[in-house]
Amino acid sequence: MIRVLIVDDEALVRTGLRMILEAADDLEVVAEAASGVEAVTAVARHWPHVVLMDVQMPHMDGVAALKEINRSPNPPKVVMLTTFDRDEYVYSALRAKAAGFLLKDTAPRDLIAAVRTVAGGSATLAPTVTKRMIDAFAGQQAPDARAARARLAALTDRERQVVQVVARGLANAEIARELSMSETTVKAHVSRSLAKLGLANRVQIALLVRDAG
């Protein structure tokens, strides 16, 4: 059973998320929290596998709470929720190693699938959303291109090819077709690249590639 903590300052949103998640036989909502402070306490008390957390909240926002949660031993996977268009904290959340990013209007079946994906150790990032985030937020930073290129130099030529296509927001199946390799091989290259670069998800790969120019 996958244990989930829901964090949002709006009770109606929490109720809706709970109803969606508990419709799945393998998901259990173990607690709710209305702020980042409550989220940190709830993680220590209930030990969820996955946290669905709003970015913008009073009394410690989602990014600050994410950083606190990641300092705990064996921290849960944290998926940030946002309306995106008004959200100026997404870039910081990804840099803080959020395990995923979802819009609040994500379809119920996609939300359930995302929780399962994150619980299984992968990121939950829709390719179309990935591209929007990169375009919207990467320009706000002043990256050190030389340092970014040095990090990418640790990859093999084939791994660099794969991460460059990941940066365009393509899914594994699309990458496989473009580079004439199997989807399994693409997944392996992405996993090895994440490990070598010390990154948590595909969006962080994309941001690093963009930083490198």
Rank of each mutant, 00 (worst) to 15 (best):
V40H: 13
P48G: 00
G213F: 05
A150F: 08
A113Q: 13
D54S: 07
E178Q: 15
A171C: 04
R132M: 02
T184K: 13
V90I: 14
T124C: 03
V43I: 02
G198N: 09
M53A: 11
S193L: 06
A200I: 07
R95F: 00
D87H: 05
D54E: 11
G213I: 07
V13R: 02
A145D: 10
Q164M: 10
V165I: 15
K196C: 03
E178I: 03
P75C: 11
T15G: 09
G121H: 08
Q164P: 03
A176H: 04
K77E: 15
A147H: 08
S92Q: 15
V190S: 02
D105K: 13
V78H: 00
A150L: 14
E88S: 04
A138H: 13
S72Q: 15
G169H: 01
N172K: 07
L5Q: 01
R45C: 03
M181L: 14
Y89S: 14
V30I: 08
V13D: 00
M53N: 04
A126W: 00
V13L: 08
I20Y: 06
H189N: 11
L27N: 07
R71G: 08
E22P: 04
L27C: 09
A96M: 04
T128D: 13
A150G: 11
M1W: 06
T130K: 01
M19H: 10
D110Y: 03
F137K: 03
R14L: 05
